[in-house]
Amino acid sequence: MFEARLNNATTLKKILDAIKDLLNEGTFDCSDSGIQLQAMDNSHVSLVSLTLRSDGFDKFRCDRNLSMGMNLGSMAKILKCANNDDTVTIKAQDNADTVTFMFESQNQEKVSDYEMKLMNLDQEHLGIPETDYSCVVRMPAMEFARICRDLAQFSESVVICCTKEGVKFSASGDVGSANVKLAQTFNVDKEEEAIVIEMQEPVVLTFACRYLNAFTKATPLSNQVQLSMSADVPLVVEYRIAELGHIRYYLAPKIED
């Protein structure tokens, strides 16, 4: 039997909001170490990797490894039925073809359960090599979301240029050209407002805005976002999920033909 409980539905609701527009469906691979989901979007230009550790749940039981193919749009609809402060429990029998979501109100007066059919998804799993990235930028997640949204008005592509001075986001098209330069911060009082750049060597990479803007749907999950870049390999956009895990988005670059 599989059973995972969170005392607060907020995080799970935000996780679904962070992936449901990019992915139509995904397989939740459950083991005693937690829940993993890895899936590419339909165009195979981006990949989502979600990791939720079992010790981040308020109760976690996984007798046998279990893969649950979920329609993420349906799962998001079910989670819309939960209040943020409801306790949420995900339950499935070992060789089940359905999964149950149970929501309990804080005052225990209201208990709801929603049963959803599971899907047979034969999604292939991709190996993501450990990479020592040339540039790693940590910055406020809201700032990154704002830049992606603003620059998408100028072009379908954003050029990210990272040097020891700072990181520059550029876009140019019919409207005109835009450059947003962020310098590394040194004396911020709040860690989450810092802009930290670890640079082995400078990089210049081009990415499609529409995917970056899909990734920033994860902004409510974390104050900070981490961008990892190396020449001619996918960008990694990572949001940590406090005390539970992280969501990593990989975006294939646009390269000179």
Partner: peptide
């Protein structure tokens, strides 16, 4: 011109 690459050309199927 810039060409959009695919994830599959960077990560191998396991």
């Amino acid at each position: 011109t810039v060409k959009q690459t695919k994830i599959g050309s960077f990560f191998e199927k396991e």
